[in-house]
């Protein structure tokens, strides 16, 4: 199944490049647009892994709502749109880079040690599992209560955001 491999590597490289763009871009709006690429890439990865429903939710919620929220946030805080070096980063970026690389090294060592050589088998059962019907059965049967709790959490977040952001 070399098509799948090629698709994966194309998507993965694009995602990593875009992610670097998010954290290195000198323009806040560009960073948000790079984020769109990463999020879309993640959706494509989900489709590769036969999780269609999650992929579409990812597109709708993340790209449709969250990125728009970010753009509003950028607009309302009048973030500097200029391109001066270092304006958007603080003075600990070298230390941050070291820590990030260190954590990455540890993680990769752990993953290679734990899951080296394990394969995902793309069977018919997996395709069946990706269907929205299966997901919704699981969501509304086994996870009904967490689902309700999450809806309460969303309500609380809504109220909290309104309380925080209103002027008084």
């Amino acid at each position: 199944m070399w098509e799948r491999d090629i698709a994966f590597w194309v998507i993965a490289l694009a995602m990593m490049a875009a992610a670097l763009g998010v954290v290195r871009s000198r323009n806040v709006v560009h960073a948000a647009l790079f984020l769109v690429v990463v999020l879309a890439g993640a959706a494509a990865i989900y489709i590769l892994l036969v999780a269609e429903f999650v992929a579409w939710v990812q597109v709708l919620i993340y790209i449709g709502a969250v990125v728009i929220l970010f753009l509003f946030g950028i607009m309302l805080t009048r973030a500097p749109m200029g391109t001066e070096e270092g304006k958007l980063d603080n003075d600990q970026r070298w230390a941050a880079g070291v820590v990030a690389l260190f954590v990455l090294g540890v993680l990769i060592a752990l993953l290679v040690d734990a899951f080296g050589g394990t394969d995902i088998k793309f069977t018919n059962a997996l395709v069946e599992q990706g269907r929205t019907r299966t997901v919704s059965n699981s969501l509304f049967r086994d996870f009904l209560v967490p689902f309700e709790v999450v809806s309460m959490l969303l309500l609380a977040a809504l109220v909290g955001a309104v309380v925080l952001a209103r002027r008084d």
Binding site: F8, A12, I45, D89, L111, T118, I120
Partner: peptide, 24 residues
């Protein structure tokens, strides 16, 4: 397909995220 490909992609994204959280 190798499971680790996905996991390492995720690890890379995660660490780029860490860098962003710390350095931005």
């Amino acid at each position: 397909m190798d499971l680790n490909a996905f996991l390492i992609l995720a690890a890379v994204l995660f660490c780029i995220g860490i860098y962003g959280v710390l350095a931005r």
